[in-house]
Design a protein around this nucleic acid. Structure first.
Lengths: 241, 241
DNA sequence: CCGGTCGCTTGACCAATATCAACGACGCGC
DNA sequence: GCGCGTCGTTGATATTGGTCAAGCGACCGG
């Protein structure tokens, strides 16, 4: 559970599929070269921890590809999965910019390649390109929006609604449509993580899943789900659920 | 519930107790003068709405003094009190900077004076002072931290713990210590808002309060609370509760 | 002074969820 | 193949919290 990840050869930023979105798009070719030269890439296997809650933050990470879960451990030992982060997401940028220790641990849930940039490099980039700061601000605002939405959902929706919401979100990232089967999702995380994501235990997840099957809303087989009618679920999430 | 607030004479920024903290501290005297000249001040009575969820955002507000609740209405009619904002807090800056409609409604919960700055003025300030953007970023990061903390709390703490947490937070802002009575808090909001803040109904608040009284953790009389031992409560919140 | 509304509380009841325990399936190391 | 741990499931049971209904006191307008 606790390793540093395996160093891998540096991936070029120019060829990176995410170099045109988010913060990267404002960087000049020269700056991109600098980043490519300065960053250190690593591969984390599922279960490996990229950084630990409480640790000092001395740089930030981008997810090149893979899946990362940010976990928060309560003083009493309860663990919550605060969010899932996918390709293109930044990890630890908030703590870096605010000069604070990591609030959450980041753990690879699938094989994940990340690009690491040290505080000094980020500082130079920020000093050299004033627009970069604006884009970090925008990223922070977007993240805030999502967290606030999740917060409201957690406050006044039941487990069933939250589970459907989580599954639908996962579907958007990992699902696909098959003409003969329908909307298929291979759930990329374990039951207990699905539970930690919506604030319950694995038992309740199991039971809620069986309810959904009885109501023919979705069919589950291991980690694969087939949704009968996505629109119906959307509607249920929006209205009372 | 829906008025525009009463215009009041402009309050000088130089004499404002909050002009030295947060974003303001980086402004020059000239810039402060500009702000004073450009802003429009208003007074909102309890129940009046400063802006509505879904409305377009064309400026931002600072709370000069008073208390504001940000409410979020679900598609199914459930209302959550996302956060309480006090003197010195900015309202609507996220939506302004992200160019999005308001996510929540802002309602005065006590008589509240706010300073309004239009988008154009903020733009000019941002263009003229590059450090201002950095400070908005920091504010956003701090707000994110608080929301994320609340989110985790909502995910894996029960009503009782969340209520204690909310009361303690209120105590920090509105409480005081009396040598003969102890730690006294005049709760500044109604029961139903206290309920909406932690995601339950007024009935459950009532019952939870009586439990706390039976356990001699606090004594309630109307909106006044006297805490027996703040430290005990702190401990209970940190550990399992 | 009266009727009405609102905020808060209480009771009774029910639904949702947590908790404890056990079990089968599976993968892994030996 | 065997032992072992993990994952997912299920059952029984306890607890929490939600819902409906009623009551009570304060405040307000007529």
């Amino acid at each position: 559970m606790t390793r540093a990840g395996r160093p891998i050869p540096t991936l070029s930023c120019k060829q990176c599929p995410i170099h045109l979105e988010g913060e990267w798009c404002v960087l000049s070719d020269d700056e991109l070269e600098t980043v490519t030269a300065a960053k250190r890439d690593r591969l984390f296997e599922p279960g490996e921890v990229i950084f630990h809650q409480g640790d000092a933050c001395d740089g930030m990470y981008w997810i090149r590809d893979g899946l990362v879960g940010e976990r928060r451990l309560d003083p009493d030992g309860e663990m919550a999965l605060v969010r899932l982060s996918h390709t293109g997401k930044a990890l630890g940028y908030q703590e870096l910019l605010a000069r604070k220790p990591y609030r959450n641990s980041a753990e690879a849930l699938k094989p994940t390649r990340v690009c690491y940039l040290s505080r000094a490099v980020i500082r130079d980039l920020l000093d050299g390109n004033s627009r970069l700061g604006d884009l970090f601000l925008l990223r922070s605002l977007r993240d805030m929006e999502m967290t606030e939405d999740d917060y409201v959902t957690a406050l006044n929706r039941g487990i069933r609604s939250r589970l459907l919401h989580a599954l639908l979100t996962l579907y958007k990232h990992y699902g696909h449509f098959e003409i003969d089967k329908g909307h298929v999702l291979e759930i990329p995380i374990a039951r207990k993580d699905l539970a930690a994501l919506i604030g319950t235990g694995p038992e309740t997840i199991s039971r809620t899943i069986r309810k959904l099957e009885k109501e023919r809303i979705a069919r589950f087989e291991g980690r694969q789900v087939v949704f009968s009618c996505i629109d119906t679920i959307q509607a249920e999430i929006r209205s009372t659920g």
